[in-house]
Design a protein around this nucleic acid. Sequence first.
RNA 1: GGAGGGGUGGCAGAGUGGUCGAAUGCAGCGGUCUUGAAAACCGCCGGGGUUUAACGACUCCCGUGGGUUCGAAUCCCACCCCCUCCGCCA
Length: 432
Amino acid sequence: MLDIRALRSNGAAIRDALARRGVELDLQAFETLDGERKQADIRSQELQARRKSASREIGNLVQSGISVDEAKARVAETLKEIDEQLDQEVARAQAIHQQIEEMLMGVPNPPQDVVPDGLSEDDNVEIRRWGEPRSFEFDVRDHVDVGEGLAGGHLDFDAASKLSGARFAVMTGGLARMHRALVDLMLDLHTSSHGYQEIYVPYLVGPDALRGTGQLPKFEEDLFRIAGERELYLIPTAEVPVTNMAAGEILDADALPRRFVCHTPCFRSEAGSHGRDTRGMIRQHQFEKVELVQMVRPDQSTQALEELTAHAEAVLQALALPYRVVDLCAGDLGFSASRTFDIEVWLPSQQTYREISSCSNFLDFQARRMQARWRNPETGKPEPLHTINGSGLAVGRTLVAILENYQNADGSVTVPEALRPYMRGLETLEAR
RNA sequence: GGAGGGGUGGCAGAGUGGUCGAAUGCAGCGGUCUUGAAAACCGCCGGGGUUUAACGACUCCCGUGGGUUCGAAUCCCACCCCCUCCGCCA
């Protein structure tokens, strides 16, 4: 959520920054509403103050032996005025506050100044590449053909569609094991080498958590909501439950940074992406992800984003998968992000790099929505902290990348060396 | 699913209609004392908002939302959460 004080004192700069991502902020409307709010606050608070002192006076009179009716009669004028106006004015002020809240909750995070200009992914800026895409001396097949052709366990979209329809996958045998091994490798790497604490969280969350990270109120159609009396949603990413661990908290300065790594399934309706990536397991309603989440002091978040991105890259380096890192342009940023580095892995079948991780600095945007704060020793006051997260990595897409990059002419797949200890030394997934 | 108990400041824990945003203890912060530390003693010490250059002033918040009342932490209703016992269960 935007900082309402910053909006009052520096609205034009925020409006201009938002314009870079193609969002028009109606400053005039905000200022009008905020002005009404001020009037309503002053009036309702004044009335409340009068009621308070009148009540207090009645109390004093009653205690000095005067009857309640008599005491009320002595402040009758104030009581009448209160009776006529107070409820109405308080309700008015409340309604305006709610309107402002709704307005602010719908506005995305302004991009940082360093974010490149541009309105679509075409304007993203590549900032580095790692690894050399392999040259194949045979016709490469995509991960669907490779996966479906494996012996001793394979990729089975027919079975998945029988169970759940489109955009789901079934994996069996060695392939399922490799999928599980990837999760294990990632968790081990981040906990033992990068200083993250592993955390297990619910896969169903309530609306407050989703508002906190920014999925609600604007993007409900991207979520799966479960039937039943309680308002619960399947998590679209572990970011939601993990970041909201800090909701409503005031953390001590020495408790920061907090670093969590969390493996969960993720559930996305993919509304609005019909026809995109319909083949294979690039875009699924359900996929596994290992997520990195950090809560940091505001002066550390820029550096923390660089580090977190490197932590995600380390997984691809361990697996020797070629990738590049892209600095997202203003128009391609997610709703809550102020800056994002996408990591894209090389997919030989598409002869292109595809997103496998998205690492973002949210600054205090999410923290303000969920009231996640730290106590700044310099001011002694609670202040919003900064949140950062990124995939480390999307497991399904990592598996896709391995199937494609490690495929052999005979249809088998070599198991990356780093993964072998997690697969009891298995070196190859054989072809049928 | 049945029966009962309970949600108050970082924690513990008083408060059952009137200067209560709230006793007390612990923790924390500052100070006195001390070579230093501990102990002792003194002081400070919840959060949001409005207003102010600032000091300050005002207002809201005692699980959440309604209600009763001149006045609600305290009474009433609904919901949520936690605990204990019984039943069921991965």
